[in-house]
Design a protein around this nucleic acid. Structure first.
Lengths: 253, 253
DNA sequence: CTTGACAATGCGTTTATATGCATGTATTAT
DNA sequence: ATAATACATGCATATAAACGCATTGTCAAG
């Protein structure tokens, strides 16, 4: 059995049962306790689990997420997602853009939430299918492979007929003057119509994207309602945005 | 044995069993461990797999893990998928219906295949994103939760503008007189337009669905080009269909 | 047909990794 | 406080990976 395979099993078991007891697990998959402990230590170092005496616990208590380590959202993104979820309300129509942060939001939506979610990201659609009271609309188009979202004329066309209460926008670059911008032209068109057709827009942005620009503009800063960023972002960096009347939210630990 | 051929085997095995153990594989196909390692290194460099000590794992992007495991197909479906793949040719436009068998087909497409695949299944779109030479079109619409496909007017509308060379149709019920039918009305409309707009149609059907009927008709038997079923289906059961001129294919072991 | 260039493969050696065990130390429970 | 359990550390061993080199097979130019 491969080490990584074992660690995947550990993560999976954790997500299902919420805890790991090292001794039990070593018996279950027939390796020494030392090996299990080493695995747990690795995972803890990677920030994926919380190590405790006798075993380990899920790092994020609510987290019923099913993601691999290398694609696992960073702490920052999880914090941002947690804050973003607090914006959504029952009976809203919500546009969820593609991206790892928005995927994290999809996972963290309250189970009982009664809403319509529109997305152009197949992975998000798959996650949403688990929620009994969420009506999911997948917007079609060409698949842009690296980011796993649909783009193109069909996508823009479909969005042009959809008007949402709230849009959760994954942001590649955010700059006080340039506004929101992205490196892919087609993607910028899709994001633009998402913004245009939403009453409120929340931009999800990790600190490394603040103050940066990319070739294609999506929308000016003034189109944003909220900027949600990680917990420890300095107020200095955010000042230019709040000065323009955007509500700044910081990630919740 | 050619290098590419081997690497294709590796990808297939990986998509299937979730892991590769270098030693086992080298024994299985009778090449040195070095060769396998070199192959794994190549694939890892190309970003297609995740290399680990002792072998390799799926690079497991958006849709892996326990959800994925539920999608692991039975032997019969794997055989059917293998046979179905032999129908696809370069430069075709292919419609892939939703369902576990078609998902299996997506996993088994040749790596170098140059084609356009149109699907209304988000999980399939996610799988296809791994293929560098496949252009993927996701058809949007409402998500039908249990089967994870899009349905509704938007879906039908989008398909009405797409004309394919080949359609791989997941089939719920197949009957000599009733033809293809399904239990969901909206789904039947989507499948119907898929069939209508494809030059050739392959119906993928496990033996338990042969000779059964469901409330909503998708298409008459005469609209089918191929019926692909599991390897050990009796000829008696298939006779009514072959009598109508449908080409019968049996799954490959 | 021959020859040279090149890629693919296999083998031997060296280096790195993973695991289990023994030992001593920390933590928890009674 | 003391026993019981869990943990970290160092070490030995087995296994896997990387590297260099020799061999083979393929293709194209001479």
């Amino acid at each position: 059995m491969l080490k990584e395979e074992r660690q995947q099993i550990i993560m999976e078991k954790l997500r299902h049962e919420g805890k790991i007891v090292a001794v039990d697990l070593s018996a279950a998959i027939n390796v020494s306790e030392d090996t299990i402990r080493r695995d747990l230590r690795d995972l803890a170092d990677a920030g994926l689990i919380q190590r405790v005496h006798g075993g380990a616990l899920l790092r994020s208590p609510a987290g019923a997420s099913y993601k691999e380590r290398q694609f696992m959202s960073s702490d920052a993104k999880m914090d941002i997602a947690r804050a973003a979820v607090s914006l959504v309300q029952n009976r809203q129509v919500i546009i969820l853009d593609g991206g790892t942060t928005t995927l994290e939001i999809a996972r963290r939506l309250p189970i009982g939430l009664h809403a319509t979610v529109v997305t152009n990201s197949p992975p998000i659609a798959v996650v949403l299918a688990d929620y009994p009271d969420i009506q999911t609309v997948m917007v079609g188009g060409h698949i842009l492979s690296p980011s796993l979202v649909t783009i193109g004329a069909a996508t823009v066309e479909a969005f042009s007929n959809i008007h949402a209460d709230l849009c959760m926008l994954g942001v590649c670059s955010l700059h006080p003057e340039m506004g929101v911008s992205t490196p892919d032209y087609e993607e910028s068109l899709v994001k633009r119509i998402m913004v245009t057709n939403s009453a409120e827009v929340a931009a999800l942005v990790t600190v490394d994207k603040l103050g940066t620009g990319a070739p294609y503009t999506v929308a000016p800063i003034s189109d944003l309602t909220y900027i949600i960023t990680e917990a420890d972002t300095s107020d200095d960096m955010l000042q230019p945005y709040s000065a323009k009347g955007i509500t700044i939210m910081k990630g919740k630990k």
